[in-house]
């Protein structure tokens, strides 16, 4: 079953096609590795799927909704969340508040009369515990190390309790211990039937975690399929590894 698909998706920056007539399918309950050389369009695609960018043409079908563009306001409806390639936390807020802000009420008037409930605090503790950041709950996000910041951003995505997760290079810059935490989180999400799109440069991690791989090159689909087969294809090796 398909969670997200794109139809003839085009995105241009200054006339250059970052995504060129892209037809893709991401299956429900799977981890799909999204790989490709720098500038191949991976992050642009994730930015379009999460509503950060609008495509120039084409369509996105997400959980059965066909849309010309994704309005980020509807992400809770699509049950979609994401992390960013460059960590984007709410720096001058505490670690706890970075999670609570995602857990609590969206509606302005309800938000005025709500602080947070016991459930929200318990959920926050649970996530911080999973990330090994429990002790940092009341520190400012700006004071965390790079790896901790990366973990917190993953935690913020988890706080959405979504069905679809877009992870943009979640392992970049992490120490081995932290990598283990993220691997465990991804496997847990998959175990719970969640759909994951994983942008990652480490082929070992892609092999270990992905059910399927999609390879982009210059905004077009170069190859897709099972990781072991796709990563052995000559055109993939040439384009991606430069060999």
């Amino acid at each position: 079953m398909t969670a997200i698909s794109t139809k003839n998706l085009v995105k241009k920056f200054n006339g250059v096609r970052a995504l060129d007539d892209l037809d893709l399918e991401f299956k429900k309950g799977q981890i799909t590795g999204l790989i490709g050389p720098n500038g191949s369009g991976k992050s642009t695609l994730v930015n379009i799927l999460s509503g950060l960018f609008s495509p120039d043409s084409g369509a996105i079908v997400i959980n059965g909704f066909k849309r010309k563009r994704i309005n980020p306001l509807d992400n809770p409806v699509y049950s979609l969340t994401r992390t960013f390639q460059e960590v984007r936390l709410f720096n001058q807020m505490t670690v706890e508040d970075n999670l609570l802000v995602v857990l609590t009420e969206r509606n302005v008037f309800s938000a005025l009369f709500e602080k947070h409930t016991k459930y929200h605090l318990e959920k926050t503790k649970e996530i911080l515990d999973k990330l090994g950041l429990k002790e940092k709950a009341h520190e400012l996000a700006a004071n965390l190390s790079y790896g901790q910041r990366k973990l917190l951003e993953i935690g913020r995505a988890l706080a959405m309790n979504a069905e679809i997760y877009l992870f943009d290079e979640p392992f970049a810059g992490l120490f081995p211990e932290m990598r283990k935490i993220v691997i465990k989180i991804l496997q847990e999400l998959k175990g719970n039937g969640k759909t994951i799109i994983l942008i990652e440069h480490s082929m070992d991690l892609i092999r270990e975690l992905s059910d399927e791989v999609i390879v982009l090159d210059s905004g077009t689909l170069l190859a897709s399929g099972q990781p072991d087969k796709v990563l052995e294809e000559k055109k993939v090796i040439e384009a991606y590894l430069g060999e």
Partner: peptide, 19 residues
């Protein structure tokens, strides 16, 4: 809390469905 998040990164908080 949302106001502070807007101050910190308007684009990021939008992604989580805030108007």
């Amino acid at each position: 809390r949302v106001l502070k998040a807007i101050r910190e990164d308007e684009g990021a908080i939008k992604i989580f469905g805030y108007n």
